Simulated assay, not measured.
Amino acid sequence: MLTDKIKLGPRRLKVVADAGNGGAALYIEQFLQSLGDEVIPLFCEADGSFPNHHPDPVRRENLTQLTEIVQKHNADVGIAYDGDADRLGVVDDQGRIIWGDRLMVLFWREILAKHPAETALVEVKCSQALVDEITRLGGKPVFCKTGHSLIKAKMNELKLLFAGEMSGHMFFADELYGFDDAFYATGRLLRIVSNTERKLSELVSDIPIYHSTDETRIDCPDNRKFKVIEEIRKGALKEYPAITIDGVRIIYPEGWGLVRASNTQPVLVARCESTSSEGLEFIARDLKERILRAGVMDFTWE
């Protein structure tokens, strides 16, 4: 089914596939070879003890070996998978990580060219660069809650064609069935790259890279986390506009700061972004003070 739906362009690619010893290890080499790629396998032996690194491509430290192999072999792209292969992480030909929101820019450029004025769900953790690019392409960005089940339900309700998450879930309903299959998302990315002579690093070079923190997880008991968010929300709205569909995304003059309660763990999830380093310093400090005042233990930005 995948090879019927995905036909690559004339350029043959060299791809490093890091299965992280998870479920992708069973078939990723076979799949990529069937597309016509040259495959360099990395940790493609299924092993539930995960002897090399945890299979979570949203964590920078889990992409270290992939980055090294991409650069060593002058590969076109490196792709890492989570344990059950419904999320992917991407490293470009220069060994630089392309996080989920920047990856979605590439997919939206392809999709909005065919489906102008499509509504585009944007989860609250995503960069303003994604929002701005969707708008530039003629799409209609709408913020939504984090959570793959919530996003799929909203896509189905509104009959939307594509959405994604920072975490690497990508949901295609334009040419697939609306669920998050990292093998299919890989194929869509390789289709884009194989149909141009430009390198992946060049394809993303015009997407602004703002100053930002990584996603930071802060311990907070389940019976407290939503009360903490509500307290922060009330205080923030007295001083700044905010998006409150999922936690609080405070809109500062030079960027934004988000804190939300995890759907699955006793933690708060926070992230900040700014157009300047000074702006990021201010936003990170201000948001941290608000979180601490709400009674949360001290933490360090990642």
Rank of each mutant, 00 (worst) to 15 (best):
D246N: 08
R249S: 02
D222T: 03
N62H: 13
I207F: 02
M170Q: 11
K114M: 04
D4N: 15
M155I: 12
K145E: 02
Q33I: 01
T213V: 05
K7S: 15
E215L: 08
V131G: 06
F179V: 10
L26M: 11
H169M: 01
G89W: 15
R11D: 05
M155V: 04
D18F: 12
T119Y: 01
K227C: 04
G247H: 12
K238L: 15
L176A: 14
I218W: 08
E197L: 02
H211P: 01
G22I: 02
P116T: 13
A261S: 14
H53R: 15
M155T: 01
E281Q: 11
G257V: 08
P57E: 11
V124K: 09
L42R: 14
T244Q: 11
M104N: 02
L35G: 06
G95D: 11
L88T: 10
I243P: 03
D180L: 07
N21L: 06
S277G: 10
G9K: 15
D56E: 15
R60D: 00
G95R: 15
A182F: 06
V267Q: 04
S201R: 14
L268D: 06
Y184P: 00
A120Y: 09
L35R: 11
E45H: 13
H54W: 12
D18H: 11
P266E: 03
G187H: 13
T196D: 03
V296P: 05
